[in-house]
């Protein structure tokens, strides 16, 4: 299931894992069912090195410049950014709500920490999401095992360190089974 579709180019700096960028946008007036979610989510592409990451990222709109109900997802290659995926179904996510104006910087710091293996939780990280909404933006990072408290605590502490958030920022952990209800 984790077949790699891309490899680092000559002289490039390999990443620990391959990743895939995805983009989704809610069509106004449509129900947010699982099927329409899967239909609305589009793969942007996969990368295996630092240099390949920058080639995608440099051409992508920054989250703070997106309009409407849009999300960027960055997941390890082979993991779909949805709770039904085998890697996610026993997992959960840390959620941070951001006032408008912070999303671009926080998203960049979050994904650089993930790509650089700053979380130190073995294979636990699945991916990250930035969700652009009307009044606020949300960033989240997903891990495989929601019941593993040592892992979730370590992810939280790393987030605090790498995001350099205002001290009053609230961080919330949600299991995917809670999110479905």
């Amino acid at each position: 299931a984790k077949k790699k579709t891309v490899v680092p180019g000559a002289g490039e700096h390999p990443l620990q894992y391959n990743y895939t960028f995805w983009y989704s946008r809610r069509t106004p007036g449509r129900p947010a069912s699982s099927q329409s979610y899967e239909q609305n989510i589009k793969q942007i592409g996969s990368f295996a090195s630092v240099e390949q990451f920058w080639r995608f990222y440099s051409h992508m709109t920054r989250p703070g410049d997106l309009t409407g109900h849009s999300d960027f997802h960055l997941f390890k290659e082979g993991i779909k950014p949805m709770w039904e995926d085998d890697a996610n179904k026993s997992g959960g996510k840390w959620i941070i709500r951001l006032r408008k104006g912070l999303a671009s910087r926080c998203w960049e710091n979050l994904i650089l920490a993930m790509l650089g293996e700053q979380f130190m939780v073995g294979e636990e990280i699945c991916g990250a999401v930035v969700s652009v909404r009307f009044q606020e933006d949300i960033i989240s990072i997903w891990n495989k095992t929601a019941s593993d408290q040592a892992t979730t605590a370590r992810i939280r502490d790393t987030l605090r360190r790498v995001l350099n958030l205002p001290p009053n920022t609230i961080m919330e952990y949600k299991t995917h089974t809670d999110s479905i209800k």
Binding site: P14, Q16, E51, R55, L112, G116, E117
Partner: peptide
């Protein structure tokens, strides 16, 4: 095996490397 760890500055410094262009 060995884990490939990069800090933020290292990643940002690769942003404008000739290979990335």
């Amino acid at each position: 095996g060995t884990r490939i760890i990069y800090d933020r500055k290292f990643l940002l410094d690769r942003r404008n490397s000739p290979i990335a262009q």
